[in-house]
Design a protein around this nucleic acid. Sequence first.
DNA 1: AATATAAATGCTACACAATTGCATTAATAA
DNA 2: TTATTAATGCAATTGTGTAGCATTTATATT
Lengths: 140, 140
Amino acid sequence: MSAAMTPVNKDIENLLRSHRLKRTSARMEILSLLLGSSHTISYNDISDALGDNFDKSTVYRTLNSFEEKGIIHAVNDGTGGIKYAVTREEGREAHVHFKCDNCSQTYCLPDTKIPNVKAPRGFVIKNSSLLINGTCKYCS
Amino acid sequence: MSAAMTPVNKDIENLLRSHRLKRTSARMEILSLLLGSSHTISYNDISDALGDNFDKSTVYRTLNSFEEKGIIHAVNDGTGGIKYAVTREEGREAHVHFKCDNCSQTYCLPDTKIPNVKAPRGFVIKNSSLLINGTCKYCS
DNA sequence: AATATAAATGCTACACAATTGCATTAATAA
DNA sequence: TTATTAATGCAATTGTGTAGCATTTATATT
């Protein structure tokens, strides 16, 4: 078996370099977690996984710079904090997020696009975000 | 001209009584603000409008009990705090919320229903919330 | 390989939203 | 009018996230 099921370092390094972000261990480890997760993750998830190796502000700043570069996107599932997921090709367009009431995880549904809605006269639509909750495929 | 453009006290009293909530001045005033607003309002909006007549915890607890009773519903427009609006008949069904990038107000669109989406196999949908942003009818 | 420079980090403090425990006060039922 | 039950105010606390600033580190340059 290979070293890990997690994304290989080279992939992560390339991703950082292509966005002109310095290759630091905080970024490597945080990006590795994000790439290896099937669902959105929060600051707390990252903090738990990484122990106290990095300062809170480093983790938050890392997430913010990933988001600015478009590597990840923020998801607000209504539970308080913000969660993040890597933005994959299929998910560039506005896609649906799904929060499971059972396991409390929030998933990107990159292939499920947000339908167009017709707003009342005078309201001009720019963006939209659709959050669904229910039971995820691992819990149903 | 009648006493005010705001909802009459009797309406508010009835609303409280029908939900078995005691008629206190905090509830009367907060509910009056909510009923009189065309858009969602936050704790800060209420606090500003009411001065320091009521404690922070009273205001939050009042909003929470209104929400539990279904008198109002919470809207998270991604700007930090939670906003609230009275749930009117047409809006009982899941409706769209609209955040204006210009005036920063968030509106209920009670007649704009959230379209059904087809989630991937295994995901069972219970509820959904759709937040649109753009320019509202008062700003366009 | 050594150095310069620009950026990232850790630390501490802070800001803000929201909640909680508890003693006091007020609203309604009896 | 009193008894009961719930709401309020206060103070403290939690949780999420940001900001300033000195120090350290990654990378480009020589």
